[in-house]
Write a protein that binds this DNA or RNA. Structure first.
Lengths: 249, 249
DNA sequence: ATTTTATTGCGTCATTTTAACACAATGAAA
DNA sequence: TTTCATTGTGTTAAAATGACGCAATAAAAT
């Protein structure tokens, strides 16, 4: 092999998923609480040699949430040599966090591919922990617990990527209920961006994209004027995802 | 290991670099002509287990071009299981394109991380082929030869990514000489985008970004009015790279 | 030396987009 | 019936964009 021995080339590949949900005007992320440790982790898994990487990410997502048809997108490969820490596996095994026979494996070098997913909060009924974790919960983005390894960095980069994508891609499908009000959509944007937006300008710009259909219905129940219910025109939504919203040049 | 045997998890990781250069109003890519085969390949290499992936890409770039300080950015991990084709290595070995002892290795599953690089054409004096190739040349993007495996797909995706990045990132540094004229910069944009732009509007918008400094000098030699020479304000250029040019929201 | 030629610098004008804000309508609760 | 917070639909000024006009100019042609 070109300049290397084979055992210097084979390495582990994993995926880590940053699963965003939106609830009570807060952006949340699905995290796993590790056994025995006061530490959390992103849902992830190893990629088998006969498996597409997308397939591995889909599998991880499905295992935690039970959902299949989710917007999922790779955003970065975290591949610094310093990611793996010698002795990490042994330490986890000692603590009983993982089976002893995994220790060697975890000390190997592996790179991880970051995915981000957008899911509708209410569709995730009972997120399931995996073998190494004792629970799986939604955590608010602005009050995150301590995360293992470089998972904080992965999460931050996912959020940054999401914010950037917002500038030329629509979001909301898969993150909001099928029908939603304009204020709800705006709250989502404001939450992701961490800013406030003018209600009227937001509506004009959003409608200008031409990806929304106004259903005849209104949302009642609140002691105010009942807002219209909208839904995404999925065909146009997907076109906008591909072509981008801002022309730029 | 979680659900897999170790030998079902270890795999090869490579980097492939799409190295863009700009010459005579054409966008070009540095390609390798494979030995014995009427086929070309992107410059690439395997990632050692003790190596950062960025470092591997930098190494590949340096080996082909001799350049060290190049803008280099990962853009996608190509990780479909169908990328590797059983028997591919054996076939190459038979043809004498690669040493026989590499055959098994090439039949393994490996994923490849795509990088794109922007280099100043004239700085690459004599691109060097690697062990498997007989030459290394600039090829015009609109007249590409046949490429091995999925390298066409990688190249196309790199170009698409570059076009998208153009909408909220400056380009030109590392791709043009230190000093350049506005028409030259515009030609670069037009070439990358594959469109024509209005000369006057381009200048207004570009200057509006505030990343250019006008040197006192003019470019003489052509039988026309001598255009001003500009250079990038590197500080502001880098800030624009991070913050993005179009605010969006 | 003068004219020609293609190209550059700088500017104009109409249109579109954006930002900031006003006001009436509404639906439940007081 | 009134109150209240919130929504739908505007308006207006400022800024950005798109489509041009025209004089200046550097070398080559006359």
């Amino acid at each position: 092999m070109p300049g290397f021995a084979t055992d210097q080339l084979l390495q582990g590949l994993s995926v880590d998923c940053v699963i965003f949900g939106f609830h009570q005007n807060e952006l949340k992320v699905l995290l796993l609480k590790l056994k025995q440790l006061d530490m959390w982790a992103l849902p992830g898994g190893f990629v088998g040699v006969t498996e597409d990487v997308d397939q591995a990410a889909t599998r991880v997502l499905s295992e935690r949430t039970g959902l299949e048809d989710i917007f999922l997108q790779q955003f970065f490969l975290f591949g610094d040599a310093s990611r793996h820490r010698a002795g990490h596996g042994a330490r986890l095994a000692e603590l009983g966090a993982i089976p002893a026979e995994w220790a060697d494996w975890l000390d190997r070098r592996f790179v991880t591919l970051g995915y981000y997913a957008l899911v509708e909060y209410s569709r995730v009924k009972a997120p399931k922990p995996d073998q190494t974790s004792e629970s799986c919960e939604w955590c608010a983005l602005n009050a995150l617990p301590k995360l293992m390894l470089d998972h904080s960095e992965i999460l931050t980069k996912a959020h940054d990527t999401l914010k950037k994508h917002l500038n030329d891609q629509p979001i909301g499908l898969n993150l909001l209920p099928a029908q939603f009000t304009m204020p709800e959509l705006q709250a989502l944007y404001e939450t992701v961006l961490g800013t406030t937006l003018d209600r009227r300008n937001f509506q004009r710009k959003m409608l200008g994209y031409g990806i929304l259909n106004r259903t005849g219905k209104r949302m009642t129940g609140a002691p105010h004027k009942a807002p219209w219910l909208y839904e995404f025109d999925e065909e146009k939504y997907r076109l906008a995802l591909q072509a981008g919203l801002n022309t730029g040049w």
